[in-house]
Each structure stands twice: as structure tokens, then as C-alpha cells.
Amino acid sequence: MAGFVIRRALGAVLLLVVTSMVTFAIFFVVPRLAGQTVDQLAAQYVGKDPSQAEIEATKVKLGLDQPITVQYGRFVKGIVAGREYSFGPSTEYCPPPCFGYSFKTQRPVWPDLVDRMEVTASLAFGASVLWLLAGVSIGVLSALRKGSFFDRAAMITALAGVSLPIFFTGLLSLALFLPTGVSYVSITDDPLAWAKNLLLPWITLAFLYAALYARLTRAGMLETMGEDYIRTARAKGLPERIVVTRHALRATLTPILTVFGLDIGLLLGGAVLTESTFSLPGIGRYAIDAINNNDLPQVLGVTMLAAFFIVVANLIVDLLYAVADPRVRLS
């Protein structure tokens, strides 16, 4: 087991390195390959209508005049040890982990991301509890009563949940229940207000995912209930309740765990639609603003963060899978 953990952890680190390379390449190599000059590239990192002097300064600060390897080296060093952007006397310091420095807002990206992390994490984890509970239990009940009225109603609702876009359900629920809109309150300030404000975004986001999970769980349960080992469990004389929970659900939930981990990882990188619809100041909102402002360092930072979450979520899922399924652990 220890070997397995080490192998997977090393793999995750490797994946992070590769991700950083790809992200770096997208932002600094691909545009050049596409025919942009160094000056044009540098111009995008300055504010609007940049002067030639500003472009020159940014070029040096970012090291765009250096070879690619040196640029990437600085990029990595920034993440690990922090980085200074200097041109002559003007120096901007970006403390580690340096996910970039926005020359437009004159601020390093990372602290902004940390500020917004709480909102996104609150949204993601709260909603995930809701959708996991609702989705899995509806899926199980549907599978056990396949073809019943409950099953059909649940699956039609689920179809609606999957098909309706968040901004539709979100705006509709806002109009119906909270026309004044929601405003985020930190959990450390007032947990009650925190939950009260987030309830509607949670439900909206969870509705979509619960629908997906109900369908997944239902399909998984139907397959598992047909397995030979379920027949064995019944042949042993186990009560149906235990057959369903300890034997069928255990096997069904394991693959769902994988999807769940990835979904959480994705959402932590920004629940763009939900945050926008409810005007929540989270990572997703930050990404949208960064794109609208054409602030490339911010976009780069968000991209790196999202990729980081997905890799970490993947690692956790792998480890959990090994705990759940002995065949993975011991093979």
C-alpha cells in the first residue's frame, strides 16, 4: 500500500510539472509560434494603449527577451520561491507561490485567488453534500423500483436537471425566492448568514449535479444488482436492506467516487456559471473578469490553479479507490 501511495504521488507531481509546461507554452510559446512578435506579446501584459516604453519595460520584466528555457525556469522559480519583475529602478515583487503578476492591477495574482477561494470552496463543498445525498438516494430508490411511478418521475426530473442551464434555473430561483439577490458573508464572520446566503446557489448547482448522479447511480445499481455476488448475498440469507447497502451500494459507489472527485476538482477551479448568476465573488467570477479585462497574468493564474485542483482531486480519488477496491491496491 505504501508503495502504491508513493507511486501515485510521484505520478501526480509529474503531472503537475507537465501541466505547468503546457500552461506556460500556451501563454508564452504558442502566441509566438502563431506569428506574434515579442512586442505584441508584451503589449498584452500591459494596460490599455501601452506606450513603447511600457512595452519595453514589460518585455524585460517578464524576460520575454530571454530564451524559452530561461523564461520557463523563472516561471517555475516564481511558483516555488517567488519572483521579482524588475526593469531599471522599478521592481515588482511577487511572493511565492507566484502565479503571475498583473501589471494592470499592479498586484500579484495569488493573494487575489486566495481571497476568492473561500467563496468557491463554500459553494462547491456545500453543493456537493446536497447533490451526493440527493442524487445517490434518488438513484438507488429509482433502481430498486425500476419502472415505478417514482422511478419515472425521478428520471424525468433528472433529465430536466441535466438539460436546464444553470443561468436559467439560477435566475428563475432568484426571481422566485430572493429577488434582492445574494451577498456573500464569510463563514468566519457569521455562519448562519453564510449558509442562508449560499442556500439558493447550493440548491441550483446541486440540482444539476444531483440529476447527473441520480442517473449514474441508477444505472450502476441496476448493473450491480444483477451481479452474481448479489445473488450469493441473498443466498446467504442476508436481509434485503443489507444486500442493497453493504453489497450493492458499496460496489456502485466506487466508480461514482471517481466522478465525484473530478467534479469537485473542476468546481474548485471556479463554478463560473453559478458564481456569475448569483454574483458571488469566487474564482470563476475572477476568471470571467480577468478575461473581460484581457488580463493575461490573471487568466494564467486561474488556469494553473484549476489544473492544480484537478490533479490533486485525481490523486485523492485514486487513493480512495484503492481503499475501496482491494483489487486496485493489490494488483
Binding site: E227, D228, Y229, R231, T232, A233, R234, A235, K236, G237, L238, P239, E240, H247, R250, A251, T254, A324, D325, P326, R327
Partner: peptide
């Protein structure tokens, strides 16, 4: 009948790999 299963009457199956819970 459930209480009889396993205690009074038991069953073994063709493919023991799929008939036992893998987890």
C-alpha cells in the same frame, strides 16, 4: 424463507470469482 436461506438451505455457484464480492 430468508431466514431459512444460508441456515437450512445453501447454494454454491458456477463461477466463484463473480459469485464472491470483490471488495
Amino acid at each position: 424463507v430468508r431466514k431459512l436461506r444460508g441456515r437450512k438451505m445453501a447454494m454454491i455457484f458456477q463461477d466463484p470469482l463473480s459469485a464472491m464480492h470483490p471488495f
